[in-house]
Amino acid sequence: MPPPSDISAPAAHSTPARAGNPGDRAWGWGITIFGGSLLVVAGLILYELGRVAAPSWGQLGYFKFLFSSAWDPVQEKFGALPFIYGTLVTSGVALLIALPVSVGLALFLSEMGPRALRAPVAYSIEVLAAIPSVIYGLWGLFVMVPWLRSSVEPFLQKTLGFLPIFQGPPIGLGYLAAGVILALMILPTIASVTIEVLKTVPPSLKEGALALGATRWESIRISVLPYARPGIIGASLLGLGRALGETMAVTMVIGNSPEIHASLFAPGYSLPAVIANEFAEATGDVHVGALAALGLVLFGITLILNAIARILVEAVARGPKGSRA
């Protein structure tokens, strides 16, 4: 082969171009438009939600809407309190159960479990996350609820029945059932985010504790958990956001009764459940509007929770604060 010819080169190469050729600019603009379209989608979601809810604005005062417990579409009485209460109680129960289990799972998978068991357990968690919620509802309705009614609730009544939350007839369907099924459903979310957070803990922290003669648990308690705490809180908030918005499984086991009860055994209602049950057959614009307004409340709560959760998780991922240098 002849050496690269210097004579022919400039002719072929010297076409001057402004920095960034037209192809680059077109590509850059094209993908930016796609990226921006995500913001348009977000705007659209907010706008449509407001628009559908609008007919209820004039009819209901904000205060009355949020803090009245009367819900009677026929008489156009719309009070959101039973649903807000049911949503918060079931999600709270779910978090109370799921958080320790998830952290235990995450520690098992990242620190304590026998290595041979870690992969199958991790795989099970993935399966748990992939199961559609209507199947959880089906299982909850036909397997878990009867079990709660016949074993768990009588047991709780016998042992802890002096607490108002464990009083009343054990029906099965109710806040407790919804809380337990939600716990199962948000467990993969909390566990997987917690594992991610634990991975960001510098191994040197743990090794430092171990080198001082700490046991494995002590090294976790002293060095790993404090470091990961904001991230675990973030993971819990993400799970909580999931629980608040979960519809089908809750609708199928909560009992669907727009009342407020102190007992966890009593049937209740949640924000997503009432939307799911009444929206398709809503009796008029105001009813639709009131349901959409419930959706807006739900949207607002989950939005704030998710934003806080993301910020917390990322704060851990970014690394230690100055004090930990």
Partner: peptide, 9 residues
């Protein structure tokens, strides 16, 4: 993280 029921609305 927006609940799917809200997306339905």
């Amino acid at each position: 993280g927006v609940p799917s029921i809200v997306i339905g609305i």
